[in-house]
Design a protein around this nucleic acid. Structure first.
Lengths: 378, 378
DNA sequence: CTAACGTTGCCATGGCAACTCATC
DNA sequence: GATGAGTTGCCATGGCAACGTTAG
């Protein structure tokens, strides 16, 4: 456990339930009932792991109060109790759900019980007895230490069916995400900008775009480690994918020469033309923002470095500066090295990649200005 | 466990974490460190129970996929590992959180370990060893059966400090909620209407109202069992407090005679006058909606019962019908008995109490029409 | 049996306030 | 130490789609 990475640490927060989910799907797969109770399984147990996927660190303090509403003792209702519901209780849980959950949980329990040998069951009961004799603190320690996560026996290659279905758009979207984005712990992408990019791509390719909700789900599926964050000054927060950047290294043959003037000959949409258009737009935007005229994207990049709008000590900065009188090959810098950028009011070093000045999915070509520090101060 | 109510069933869904939360706060209180790590405790463990408080039944299917990102083996990282973080990992967990969680969990574990006797620790380790030898299915069964919830030793009267602070408005709001609302498993109140009521009350009492967010938190605190729901026809959903109704039984002396015509003499705002106004408004609204003229609220109630707009077999219906030629005492019916009402486009029997026709907090007096079936079909 | 529809889960965004960290 | 600002948690609401029930 010494080499535990972030994944392992994250697991600490989801003590038993993760184990349960893992074991459950594994177990059910073995039992061959997964089809039968697939939904039950998910709806009953999945949610226990959800909170730490999308929102973290709840500083609330109602812990005790809420617990006062839950039961003491063993959690599994005794047999035969599953489908009854006493309606005149204090606690107004929706009967729909109560009932559903009840029977679902019972189903699961039943399946598990049926699936394991009497010996196993006895082993479990022995442990349970011991657990019940533990003191409060002992139980706490035990629970904190209970193994969790996948148990090693779970085949890591076995993937569940795509929960979003297998519509063609989903597949396309996954592809788009995979080809246009990649993880980078030090950069954040505003969700809206990513989605706008995606929409633009869909439009130009006659694809039916997914809704923001479904796009978000696919994002989460493709990059499960990317967490949502809200960045920006007070009152100007933007929802971001934290730890995510635009994929910048495409095949060399596709990289255009960005140094020359943009030329507009409105014929068909060649790569070059699109790049030129994007370049033009970016320059326009930058001129408006910075009050300086730029002939090319490289000009802009130089300006950014020279004026400390970006970290001037980064590899990229070095590349730009050293290339400013040399070849026009696109520098292969890594935006992640730009973390901790100072100046322009950015104090904590987050670099937010911003697509807003670009109406297409071209940024991956413009490597030298893809990463810019967006001044979000009002 | 045979008498398990909804609470118990709900607990099934939060297997170990609830236990942990409970034990933790208890344990920490004993250890006297709760002040020191109060926040840590909450942020680390509270969230595990959150998902089932506010949203249920996740039908998602990413269980396995997400689990693939978690660790196998024991969940507690070995000592001395707590504050290191390898930044160049694949998984881009935010270092802030990773680090924070890590040290928080470690702190908790440390405190617990320090607090219990070596004997206890041995007992725990013995069980852990046994658990580790269990098979997948056995572990699943064990985890499903692990005791949870408060452990009986937890003093149910010991409440945590109010997480929302102790501002005066909070206190006022709690009082308002307690005096104006009560639980009722069969009725739902639209959140917006409740909040509007609250705002109206604040305005008329020169109180500074809480924001919707804080009001919602207080609601959750006062009625932890009331779940959020979305009711209404497709595309017309309204967020509701499920299992909640307006408190209708106030002291008898306050109950006015609702049978007579409403009289408007715009003097100061006496109870009677306000009631009359409300009564008037309701009749107006009902007339518009139903196309029938009503002389009084009781007329309306009769109409509702006779036209099967509400369950005509309920106690309230009986009360109304039997009283329609008798005394004018306010019937003390219980709206919860009105569940399952049919007609008026309402198919599944939810009764949504609606404040929208009333601009003040008067409904609690108009017991015989407080509950009306709102036709939400477009 | 099919279609329609209510319900719910997840994702999105926004506001407020608390927390934390940095700066003065 | 006080102040200011970024970040985050929780609540709110809205949209979409899947699920399950009900009505036809």
């Amino acid at each position: 456990m010494d080499g535990a990475g972030p994944q392992e640490r994250a697991a600490v927060r989801c003590i038993a339930p993760d184990m349960i989910k893992s074991e459950l799907s594994d177990c059910l797969a073995k039992i061959g009932q997964s089809g039968h109770i697939r939904h039950s399984c998910n709806s009953t147990l999945m949610e226990q792991g959800r909170s730490y996927q999308s929102s973290d660190n709840d500083p609330g303090d109602r812990t005790n109060e809420r617990l006062a509403a839950t039961s003491d003792g063993i959690i599994i209702p005794s047999n035969g109790n599953e489908n009854k519901q006493s309606k005149n209780t204090n606690c107004s849980l929706d009967k729909h759900n109560t009932n559903g959950l009840d029977s679902k949980t019972s189903k699961i329990k039943q399946i598990v019980e049926d699936a394991i040998s009497p010996d196993s069951k006895q082993a479990v009961m022995r442990i349970l007895d011991q657990v019940n004799e533990l003191s409060t603190a002992e139980k706490l320690l035990l629970y904190l230490k209970l193994p969790t996560g996948k148990s090693g026996k779970v085949d890591p290659l076995r993937q569940p069916l795509n929960p979003l279905g297998s519509r063609f758009e989903i597949h396309q979207t996954i592809t788009w995400i995979r080809t246009h984005l990649e993880e980078d712990p030090d950069v954040s992408l505003p969700k809206q900008d990513v989605y706008n990019e995606y929409i633009a791509y869909c439009n130009s390719n006659a694809m039916k775009p997914l809704s923001t909700a479904d796009f978000g789900k696919v994002m989460k599926q493709v990059f499960p480690c990317v967490r949502p964050r809200r960045l920006g000054t007070r009152g100007n927060s933007r929802y971001c994918y934290a730890g995510m950047r635009k994929r910048i290294k495409l095949e060399v043959p596709l990289l255009p020469d960005l140094g020359e003037e943009t030329k507009r000959n409105s014929s068909s949409h060649s790569e070059d033309e699109l790049v030129s258009a994007a370049s033009c737009l970016i320059c326009e935007w930058a001129q408006k923002l910075l009050g300086v005229t730029f002939k090319s994207l490289r000009d802009l990049a130089c300006h950014l470095v020279e004026n400390l709008c970006v970290d001037s000590r980064s590899i990229a900065a070095f590349t730009i500066l050293s290339a400013s009188s040399g070849s026009k090959a696109v520098p292969s810098f890594t935006p992640s090295k730009l973390c901790g950028g100072k100046g322009l009011g950015f104090k904590t070093g987050w670099i937010i990649m911003d697509f807003s000045a670009c109406d297409s999915s071209l940024f991956q070509f413009n490597t030298d200005v893809t990463v810019k520090v967006e001044n979000m101060s009002p």
